[in-house]
Nucleic acid binder design. Structure first.
Lengths: 334, 334
DNA sequence: AGACGCATGCAAATGGATTTGTGAATGCAT
DNA sequence: ATGCATTCACAAATCCATTTGCATGCGTCT
């Protein structure tokens, strides 16, 4: 592998000049610049990024912390973030905090600490509602954008309008004439889960539909709990029997639909289903689910924009909080 | 951020000694070691990884090249590979070669070239059957493991037994008494797609079931082509009408099932469906699909093992080629 | 007592690129 | 022709950690 010295020798100039050709082209006269460029091309030279980092203090690395890349919601985010970062010449390091068998409560914090040793230029932290993580974020001296609901405004953040999306679904079900509905939410630890649930219930209230806490099933955001929720729904009979169910995310909906199928429950004939969240793969799920949400990629793209604004000094005010609106899309399921 | 010099000053020793405490602990006497360690802890020091890389020539970075992380097959691989790499203290850089709108034929090659500038310690290259990529691999001086079928044995490689898996499905359908079947394959460029198809057809042949090229639908490995395949199947009537279909991967199966649903075609009543591939999310797809395959995570884990063997000199013979066997899992769809 | 070996700690060289400060050369105006 | 302002190129310092080779001191063996 060739170094800047070899290029300099070959071109008959000093290392400084070679560096200028690469980084401040206009400081070098055209003929000389071309001579140096020729040497660079002949040797197939490219600057050693580690040496460059050492000198400049920038690594061109962004770390992205998410719970689980196997969750399509986060996969979409990663994909979009990577594409956006790559355009800016930055590489992404992805960290799954929810390591199988690991204790995820402490994991996020450990990761945050580990990360400070890696000297990344910026951080994208996905919502995972860890206790103590917000204080930890305050301590960081790395530009950070939090994706999700951040109670203390320690750093920039961007989230989907969970409440609004839940509201849209509630309103839709009300207009469809449903009188008795249930919902399957994510875990209480997740702000997003509670906001979706609250929005949904607010819409019911505004439409004069009775709803009690008993009609809430507290899930985990994962498929098995969707399945369990479906089993719970099967136990409801008489006046308690719902004509529609609102599911808090995609993965639980998959579990729920599978269980309904196995039990011979037909959607929407026997029960209507609407969910929060919009993902590309929903295009091929049948029955096609009525849903409110936004592609997570939009979220990630905005997060990257905010991060880049910080990195290149385009913005340096106090932490910003942004909200991405939801859209309601109606299909056969409800 | 504190440096090794500050630690040395604080502990009243030379930089060398601090370095030894960190990297060759036994070369430093216990009392001194403890004194230095105390200084390290007080200052919260950790070595600058860039400086370390510059000196040692190792970056602790592994690059992973895959077509599209949105494809669950590759998501699983990434997840497993990252977990395995992390255990070894290595970070993974993920590159999606199939950038939207990009020309993927040339992209893979460009990426490979780009990567040589990043100075990663190792490479995991996912199957994407690009022309010219195998020659490019030969030129690399970076330890590499290719995941998929590699015609020239330029580097280590590991793949799933595509042929065997296809064979299992063909045999199963034959035993179920199907006399006329069709199959939906991946693109010709993918060795894996052709191997699955060939295995399938070989099994039919061995079971004396007639099969002609007309019964092959050449898909793209993506959902829309599964949908189109379903439409094609709907046009087959009379003697051409199949009682079963073999689909080459998960994504095309999703498209096919959606189209069947929309057309009112019932699985397995009207037509049986079996696929190649096993992914966690199939657990929640209904009807539950009969399938032959292996979780891509196993593939990735083995690939990482092979790569680590190269990196720490545990193995340095000629390139190895390994094959991971498939298993047949029978469910309601066929 | 002298020679030798071992454990221990340090100074200095090394890796590769960027950047500051300086001197030389050129152009323009007087 | 002289003085001043630019432009251009370079030497050397810097970023931080690792590692080689050397110096010191202590104990052991002959």
């Amino acid at each position: 592998m060739s170094t800047i010295s070899k290029v300099a020798e070959r071109a008959g100039v000093s290392r400084t000049t070679v560096s200028h050709v690469i980084n401040h082209a206009n400081r070098v006269s055209k003929p000389l610049r071309e001579k140096v460029q020729a040497a660079i091309d002949e040797l197939g030279y490219s600057p050693n990024p580690q040496a460059k980092s050492l000198r400049t203090g920038r690594t061109n690395l962004i770390a992205m912390l998410i719970p689980d890349i196997g969750n399509p919601f986060y996969t979409e985010m990663v994909k979009a973030a990577q594409a956006a970062l790559e355009e800016a010449g930055l590489d992404a390091l992805i960290y799954n905090t929810d390591v199988p068998g690991g204790n995820w409560q402490t994991h996020g914090r450990d990761y945050l600490r580990q990360l400070s040793r890696k000297r990344v230029d910026g951080l994208l932290v996905g919502d995972f509602a860890l206790h103590g993580i917000t204080e930890e974020l305050l301590k960081l001296d790395t530009p950070t954008v939090f994706i999700g609901h951040l109670a203390n405004q320690a750093v920039d953040s961007v989230k989907i309008d969970d409440f609004g999306g839940g509201y849209m679904v509630g309103e839709h079900l009300a207009r469809q004439g449903h009188k008795h509905v249930v919902q399957v939410t994510g875990p209480e630890l997740f702000e997003s889960a509670m906001a979706r649930a609250d929005g949904f219930e607010q819409a019911l209230k505004d439409n004069k539909i009775r709803f009690s806490r008993k009609q809430r099933y507290l899930g985990s955001y994962l498929p098995p709990s969707g399945r369990e929720a479906a089993q719970w729904i099967a136990t409801l009979s008489g006046d308690d029997r719902p004509s529609a169910v609102f599911v808090g995310n995609y993965l639980m909906a998959m579990g729920l639909l599978a269980e309904f199928h196995d039990q011979g429950v037909r959607v929407p004939k026997d029960i209507a289903v609407a969910i929060f969240g919009d993902l590309p793969q929903l295009e091929y799920v049948r029955p096609n689910l009525t849903r409110a949400g936004e592609n997570p990629g939009a979220l990630a793209r905005r997060a990257v924009e905010m991060l880049l604004d910080r990195l290149n000094g385009k913005f340096d005010g106090p932490p910003r909080t942004e909200v991405i609106p939801c859209a309601l899309r109606i299909f056969e399921s409800a």
